[in-house]
Amino acid sequence: MKRNILLVIILICSFKNSFGEIYKIKRLEELKIVAEKLEPGDEVIIQNGNYSNWSIEINSKGTLEKPIIIKAETNGQVIFSGDVERNLFRITGNFINLKGFAFKSCTLKKAEKSTGVLIELNSTSNCKVSLCSFEGNIVKAQFMPLVIISGNGESNTIDSCNFISNVDNQDVQIKVTKESFPLNTKITHNSFSFKNKVSWKNGNGGECIQVGQDPVLLGNQTPKTFVSENTFTECNGENEVISNKSSGNTYTKNYFKNNDGELVMRGGHDCVISDNIFEGGTGGIRINGTGHLIKNNKISGIKTAIRLMYGMAKGKTETGFYISASNCKIVNNTISTADTGILVGDSKNADWTGKFDVKKYPSPVLQNIQPFDNEISSNHFKNVKIEILKQ
């Protein structure tokens, strides 16, 4: 055994750069050995090739000036595929950057004591996933994400990644629990595309981005996630392309093209939706909750551009499976080529009897509280049959 470990160490190619060591590796065993001794400024290069059956946790700590970089030899040429029943990459350190990996045709499964995840940043701070691609991956159980940011870390980033034609999955999940959630996550400059409708019976579990999981009991948690300058093209996984289920988040300067779904404030409060562009598809923006700011968005070619929903309860302290839209500002949006520009009061008197657990969620079942105290002003309409409809 000792001789084998020694041989692996010898096989690992390393040399110094101006910041730290550079390790060039091609085996999981090599990476595990290197991971135990990584220092600020070190760089790990995984050689080009096809890889499977990897699972590793990296708990190293870089610094702002000297992050630890783990990257592909050539962007897109280090390809992970095959069955995944655990975390492929689980990062638990700080200032670690993952760059340039391709995850293609992976099958994510649930095992007896583990769940397949491609990348998880768990209680990390200032870690980054960039220039990675996720294409044609499939999950075998509902509500399984490819990438998770979880725990009590902060200031992590998912940047310049491509999510293409993944199946039955959530792409990126910001995990919010009673005990923990990451602060100030940035999801920027990513592309999400060609996502077919999920096969799950209730049609849920196919979001591109989900920020929070329990809007009823945990919607007041404030992760302050920042989602900006991403593109969403033909993302048809479910009715919610982006699902917001927590508070204090910002969605700005994103581009939505021909999606069968909406940007949805399913739960939570005090979020900002600004300067986004929606072109074609089945929906624009859907609002439950209080204190949201919806401004400077451009929405065209969509039947109903902005929907303010009825709820079973109101405000930030009442419990309701849906919270009525209230105290929101819908200002300076430009809406064109629509049947209805802004609908104030959708799902009136919708009856949810038997559709959710009233013991877990002590909520009325009738969606009968209309939106109230919302400011709707200075919006611009062109070729819209009904500009503002209240019901």
Rank of each mutant, 00 (worst) to 15 (best):
Q210P: 00
L308R: 12
S324G: 09
G283W: 09
G280D: 14
N249L: 05
T282Q: 03
T304Y: 12
T231K: 10
N196K: 11
K316W: 06
N239P: 05
V331H: 02
L218G: 06
F226W: 12
C208K: 11
T222S: 10
K303V: 12
A305G: 08
N258E: 09
A305I: 10
P215T: 04
G281F: 14
G248R: 07
G261Q: 04
T317H: 09
N220M: 01
V241N: 07
K201I: 13
M312H: 14
I306R: 08
G206R: 13
D270H: 09
G283N: 11
N249C: 15
N296I: 00
S199P: 11
S193Y: 08
I242Y: 02
Q210K: 13
L308D: 00
G203M: 09
K197I: 13
R266I: 03
C328D: 15
S274H: 00
R286S: 12
G291F: 05
S247W: 04
G280F: 11
E238I: 10
N204D: 08
H292Y: 02
D214A: 02
D214W: 00
F278S: 06
G268N: 01
K314M: 04
Q221C: 14
G291A: 12
K224F: 13
K253D: 08
L308V: 09
S300I: 13
T252L: 00
I285M: 02
T222Q: 06
N220I: 10
R286H: 10
P223H: 02
C235L: 00
S243G: 01
N236E: 04
K257V: 15
T231M: 07
M309D: 06
G203T: 11
Q221W: 00
K245A: 15
A305W: 08
D275Y: 03
G283M: 12
N202H: 07
N196V: 04
C208F: 04
K303I: 09
G280C: 13
M265C: 11
K224Q: 15
G311C: 10
F226L: 09
N288Q: 14
E279V: 15
D275T: 03
T250P: 01
F226I: 09
I285Q: 09
G281W: 14
Q210R: 14
C235I: 01
V211H: 03
I294H: 05
N239C: 10
Y255N: 11
I294N: 03
I277L: 11
R307I: 13
N332L: 04
N204H: 06
N202R: 08
N259L: 12
P215M: 01
C328M: 08
I242V: 14
I285F: 04
G301T: 03
S243E: 07
G261P: 13
G268S: 08
W200Y: 12
D275W: 00
G291P: 04
S243W: 01
Y251F: 15
T250C: 07
H269G: 05
Q210F: 00
S300G: 11
K224H: 15
G291R: 10
K303Q: 15
E238C: 15
Y310E: 00
M265D: 01
G237F: 04
G219V: 12
G315K: 13
T250A: 00
F321S: 04
S199R: 15
G205S: 09
T225W: 06
S326V: 14
G289C: 08
G268E: 02
T317C: 05
L263I: 01
G280N: 14
Y251P: 02
V227T: 06
V216K: 10
L263D: 07
I273M: 05
K224I: 13
D270Y: 13
